[in-house]
């Protein structure tokens, strides 16, 4: 199927856009905004509002349409391929296929102090009506909290004999999360632990695709809960167990 934006008529291609330019919103500023929109591929852009937002700064709101169409048949989305099972299904899979407890060790790492995300996945109470890993039978969930240095995280992973590592990253300004996530992979490799764990990243700005790129086994963003993570991890553990045999 070919897709174009929908304003009030199918395929009219209407889009809206707003941005700031470091110039006054005078005639030149407005023209600059218009040309910028054209350079982005908009046809007939209209600057519907231009406001001065401080000395030498203008804010512009632009409407226009785009000529492009996207062919959805050609889209390939990188997402976690495993299905999401229920808590009961996961518990019985662990019991039948693994026959032992699965150890999850999680933290909000580096200088990140946000815990609500990792707590949502791990704590008993869970989030938005989805129970966390602590509530699961045959799961040992260790939530190390926030601001955990990667070195410390790796040390704990070894001590607790983690099967699954859960890393949460919320602050992304200046790409701090990329540096921190990459550093963890390097540490795990240096410690020869990388292949012995399932490594999972999560956070508001984390996608599966990004996590894979950084050398993680999976990534989970908003609207993902304990059962999504546990399904992936347990199925992957079973898979790995089989391939060892």
């Amino acid at each position: 199927m070919k897709l174009r934006p929908y304003g009030d008529t199918l395929a009219d291609g209407k889009v809206q856009l707003s941005f700031t330019l470091p110039c006054d919103p005078d005639a030149t500023g407005i023209e600059a905004a218009k040309q910028l929109a054209k350079a982005m591929g908009m046809i007939d852009p209209g600057v519907v509002q231009a406001e001065k937002i401080g000395e030498g700064f203008g804010f512009f709101i632009v409407y226009g349409s785009v000529p492009f169409a996207i062919d959805t048949d050609k889209i390939k989305v990188e997402d976690v391929a495993t299905p999401t099972l229920s808590r009961e299904e996961i518990e019985s899979l662990i019991e039948k296929e693994l026959g032992r407890d699965v150890v999850f060790v999680g933290a909000s790492t580096g200088t990140d102090a946000h815990t609500v995300g990792i707590d949502a996945i791990m704590n008993m109470k869970g989030f938005a009506g989805h129970y966390g890993l602590e509530r699961y039978k045959h799961v040992k969930a260790y939530n190390l909290g926030s601001q955990v240095a990667n070195e410390e995280f790796v040390r704990q992973a070894r001590r607790l004999q983690a099967d699954v590592l859960l890393v949460s990253q919320t602050v992304t300004q200046k790409d701090i999360h990329l540096r921190n996530l990459t550093n963890l992979v390097e540490l795990l490799e240096a410690e020869k632990l990388r292949d012995q764990v399932i490594l999972i990243a999560g956070g508001a700005r984390i996608t599966h695709e990004l996590a894979k790129e950084l050398g993680y086994d999976a990534g989970f963003g908003p609207k993902k809960y304990a059962e999504d993570v546990a399904s992936f991890a347990v199925l992957e553990l079973i898979e790995r167990k089989k391939s060892v045999k």
């Binding site: 937002i53 401080g54 000395e55 700064f57 580096g110 200088t111 990140d112 601001q147 602050v171 701090i176």
Partner: peptide
């Protein structure tokens, strides 16, 4: 900060970098 003050802000807070508190 100057732009914000010109736009009408009376108080400007400079948020600290992550990690400084530790």
């Amino acid at each position: 900060a100057k732009a914000a003050a010109k736009a009408g802000a009376d108080i400007i807070a400079v948020i600290r970098s992550t990690g400084q508190s530790l």
